[in-house]
Amino acid sequence: MHTSPLITIQAITKSFKGVKAVDNLTLSVGYNEYVALLGPNGAGKTTLVEMIEGLQKPDSGSITIQGKTWQKDAAFLRTIMGISLQETKFTDKMTVSEVLDLFGSFYKLGKKVTRQILQTIRLEEKAKAYVVTLSGGQRQKLALGVAMLNNPQLLLLDEPTTGLDPNARREIWDILMQLKKERGTSMILTTHYMEEAAYLCDRIVIIDKGKILADDTLATLLTSYDPGEVIAFQVSSPLATNSLYEIRGVKDVHWIEEGVKGMLTVESITHTLPVLLNLVESSGNTITSFESRKKTLDDLFRTMTGRSLHE
């Protein structure tokens, strides 16, 4: 057992032209722990990850990884990390196995290792294909393969599945889960996708404007920060806000279109829904669209910041 965390980040700040991208942020990641950084574009996720990767220097604060720092032990830290940057483009006219061999040779790894990785990322049949001919999913798998070459203690993936179709995304998830189980890897992942964070990660860290808004397991986040369920609806003629608050179990009313299109936060859908339907029908109104669901991280983010994760 490790007594101290793998990564300890102490009060780091990083500004670009006077704007704080990361603001006095403190975070730690344990061994064999998968952590998701969730936040909208420009929240500071990439800056944070790049500082952990040693590609950017914090203005203040400290980062230690296995007790080592970038200032003193850069060479060592590079050997224990696997990185996938946002949109790295490998050279068009290189083949998949050439890319793996090239990066493998930077770690002084033989071709035996690179061929194993080719299997792990399930691209054997594309070994001799040029990068330019690969699909988005295949390119991401290749980038992941490059990140996994050195059997890293720590994986840092910046939006590894953005823009991929569900099948390709699922495949990458499977590879990552296998890695966690078989090799005890730790991972920091940035993503826009809540379901990705939920599926892969032990902890979810919600970031906005360079600060951590919440840091916990998905279940805890959803129950303790702002519990409840959501009913979204649209009606043909306006409803009064007061009448909705009078229904038992309604905690919040959010109008997307005043009186007509709204979202209710309720304690329990099953308790509130019959009363709501009754209210609408008895006043001669009709429901034109309707959706009820458990709260998502996006709802949580909206409660915390008033904005959506996807803005």
């Binding site: 040693g54 990185i83 940057l85 990066f103 930077f106 770690y107």
Partner: peptide, 13 residues
């Protein structure tokens, strides 16, 4: 521009 340089420098190259 392709950020490949960045990716390479992140290895022990």
């Amino acid at each position: 521009i392709k950020k490949l340089l960045r990716r390479m420098v992140a290895t022990p190259m």
